[in-house]
Amino acid sequence: MRIVTWNINSVRLRLPLLKDLSAALEPDVICLQETKCPDEHFPHEGVEALGFPHRAVRGMKGYNGVAILSKRPFNLRDGADPDWCGKGDCRHLAVELDAPGGPIELHDFYIPAGGDVPDRNANPKFAHKLDFVAEATAWSAARRNAGGFKRAVLVGDLNIAPLEHDVWSHRQLLDVVSHTPVETEALTAMMRAGHWYDAVRHFVPEDQKLYTWWSYRAQDWRASDRGRRLDHIWVSPDLAGGLSAHHVMKDARDWEKASDHVPVMVEIAA
């Protein structure tokens, strides 16, 4: 089974790029973030034409929004998980996905970016980000205490680059939102609380640079290569042994009207 996560940065604007993604990676499931589309305007017909008959969407006008597109049947975990920070702001969607070895619990997250100022008191957006991750950590810990995640996958734009080589310069980005110590420690705590396993770093050692996002502000993003790894795929320990391949689709950053994030794929013998 191939699962892809991608912050598409407007599903209606970049629907043609989904066709390119599907042709290149042949995924079974695509998890999108930042769809920027209310549910009634989601381009279901265009997505169905790409071969994804099973879809779940949770969106709003102009920002946020998540969607799961699948070639395999699934059941929506509607109401089974928290309304993060009580905001109802369309940052999480979860399904029970049909798979040969049994259902897979799939979570699609879009964690708040956090604004520009890494100060909880001065920046409400940063406070929201930290509160969101704290709630997700408590949720992960509660699930662990109830028996742990089984056959589960968590993907998404988590908006934090937790490791030293997840950013182009660890030293220069220590006070930049997405790589500050309070954020990286928080995301690491969330991962540990749920006993999650970093599926992409399974293939790319932690001492190697790995990015999934390059800013629109760069005049030549490829030449400067000042990236960050903001997009993640985690699996429960019982699926880690089935990880068989991965791909970070860096060339997608050169597509016409590209998102600033690129698709990330893992293949699991599930």
Rank of each mutant, 00 (worst) to 15 (best):
45 E>C: 00
82 P>A: 02
28 D>R: 02
37 C>H: 03
40 E>H: 14
70 S>C: 01
83 D>H: 03
49 A>M: 07
74 F>S: 01
33 Q>P: 05
37 C>K: 02
29 V>L: 02
24 A>I: 06
70 S>H: 01
77 R>S: 06
74 F>C: 02
66 V>F: 09
72 R>E: 03
39 D>L: 05
67 A>G: 01
80 A>Y: 13
80 A>P: 00
58 R>A: 11
69 L>M: 11
72 R>N: 08
57 V>S: 05
83 D>G: 07
32 L>C: 02
14 R>C: 11
68 I>G: 02
38 P>C: 08
27 P>I: 07
44 H>C: 05
44 H>E: 08
54 H>A: 01
65 G>K: 03
27 P>E: 04
76 L>A: 10
53 P>T: 07
54 H>I: 02
44 H>F: 13
71 K>C: 00
29 V>R: 01
52 F>L: 08
27 P>K: 05
43 P>S: 05
80 A>W: 09
47 V>Q: 02
56 A>D: 04
41 H>P: 00
23 A>I: 05
79 G>F: 09
70 S>V: 00
69 L>V: 05
57 V>P: 00
27 P>H: 04
66 V>L: 09
29 V>M: 05
21 L>M: 14
19 K>W: 02
33 Q>D: 10
76 L>C: 03
84 W>Y: 15
56 A>C: 12
77 R>M: 14
84 W>F: 15
34 E>F: 11
70 S>K: 01
20 D>S: 15
19 K>A: 15
46 G>A: 04
41 H>R: 14
72 R>Q: 09
78 D>F: 09
84 W>L: 15
26 E>H: 14
76 L>F: 09
54 H>F: 12
35 T>E: 00
54 H>G: 02
21 L>D: 12
25 L>G: 00
77 R>A: 12
31 C>P: 01
38 P>K: 11
83 D>N: 15
69 L>Q: 04
47 V>F: 05
14 R>W: 08
71 K>A: 12
23 A>K: 12
60 M>Y: 04
52 F>P: 11
78 D>L: 14
60 M>C: 14
79 G>R: 10
14 R>Y: 09
34 E>K: 10
68 I>Q: 06
82 P>M: 06
16 P>T: 12
17 L>N: 14
55 R>H: 03
54 H>D: 01
53 P>G: 10
34 E>I: 05
38 P>I: 09
75 N>F: 10
